[in-house]
């Protein structure tokens, strides 16, 4: 019994922090989502309004459109980051001159705050002063203007996310690749397996847990992207890059609609949990059962 008590005592700080920064804020958001609350209005009191905010969410065409755009953004960003991250991880597994320098340089975007990343990309893509429109115009005669072209704005937000977060994927996959035992690879080579066969039948199954963990982290992060996109495009042009995070921000802060913003947040959290759970059930649980 004493060791049980010691266990709980050691767990207490973690549980306390988790409760303070995870559980209580969630319960509070859930509570606010059932209220009409504008703290800057003439009547700043919270008024309980049952499911009215959720009723509004399911009829909000802008929110439903933002869910679709977010899904496209998450798909393109996460898949590209995974492919590029794996290619870079494989490249960093080999020895070449200046490897340590390149590895350090390539991880630098990770330490930048998203708002800074957004401002830097904003400067780089602003027509007339940005380097990217200048080069695209000189080399291909392409006039890049993310304030006017919805497609260009969407693609640029995806590229910005890839630039920012691919190093995270690379680092996770390097850690996974380094920890692989050499024996299966040597045996496969002795048996005459090609590079593709080794990748498909040995490397990929062995680093699958690391890939899935990275995908989960990136998926959850990409679903709540706000600051970078808000800085780069402001959610525009039109609603081309109005991802759910940006939509929530615009509802909560400029319109001070806290109750409705909380309801959207709860729905987005629900979608995130369900997507991750379905991925887990579909990809990890069957293998565990077999194993």
């Amino acid at each position: 019994m004493q060791s049980n008590r010691l266990g709980w005592l050691l767990l207490a700080p973690t549980l306390l922090i988790l409760a303070m920064f995870g559980v209580f804020p969630f319960i509070y958001v859930l509570f606010v989502s059932f209220h009409q609350w504008n703290p800057f209005a003439v009547n700043p009191e919270m008024a309980f309004n049952w499911a009215a905010n959720y009723r509004r969410v399911v009829f909000d065409a802008q929110f439903i459109a933002s869910l679709g755009v977010t899904a496209a953004f998450v798909f393109f960003a996460v898949v590209s980051e995974l492919i590029l991250g794996y290619a870079l991880a494989q490249a960093f597994m080999k020895d070449f001159p200046g490897k340590a320098f390149f590895r350090t340089i390539h991880t630098l975007p990770l330490i930048m705050a998203p708002i800074i990343v957004g401002s830097v990309w904003k400067l780089m893509t602003t027509p007339s002063i940005g380097i990217i429109p200048h080069l695209l115009d000189n080399w291909f005669g392409y006039d890049l203007n993310i304030g006017q072209s919805a497609g260009a704005a969407f693609v640029l937000t995806v590229i910005m996310d890839i630039w920012h977060w691919t190093p995270l994927v690379t680092l996770s996959l390097i850690a996974a690749l380094v920890s692989l035992p050499p024996d299966p690879f040597e045996q496969a080579q002795i048996d005459g397996a090609g590079r593709w066969q080794i990748f498909w039948h040995i490397t990929l199954p062995m680093i699958r847990p690391a890939i899935l963990a990275t995908v989960f982290i990136r998926l959850m992060d990409a679903l709540r992207t706000v600051d970078e996109v808000l800085m780069l495009t402001g959610g525009g042009p039109g609603s081309a890059t109005r991802y759910v995070g940006v939509h929530i921000f615009k509802e909560v802060f400029p319109r001070t609609n806290y109750g409705y913003g909380s309801a959207i947040s709860v729905v987005v959290l629900y979608v995130t949990i369900v997507v991750c759970w379905l991925l887990y059930v579909g990809l990890i649980a069957p293998r565990n059962k077999k194993g």
Binding site: A51, Y54, R55, V58, F59, V267, Y270, V274, W277
Partner: peptide
């Protein structure tokens, strides 16, 4: 319990949108 809550929320949102 988790699956029940997931189904409850999905059903409620569907109900609010199409049945109510």
């Amino acid at each position: 319990i988790f699956i029940s809550v997931v189904i409850w929320v999905a059903l409620s949102l569907f109900w609010l949108r199409f049945i109510e």
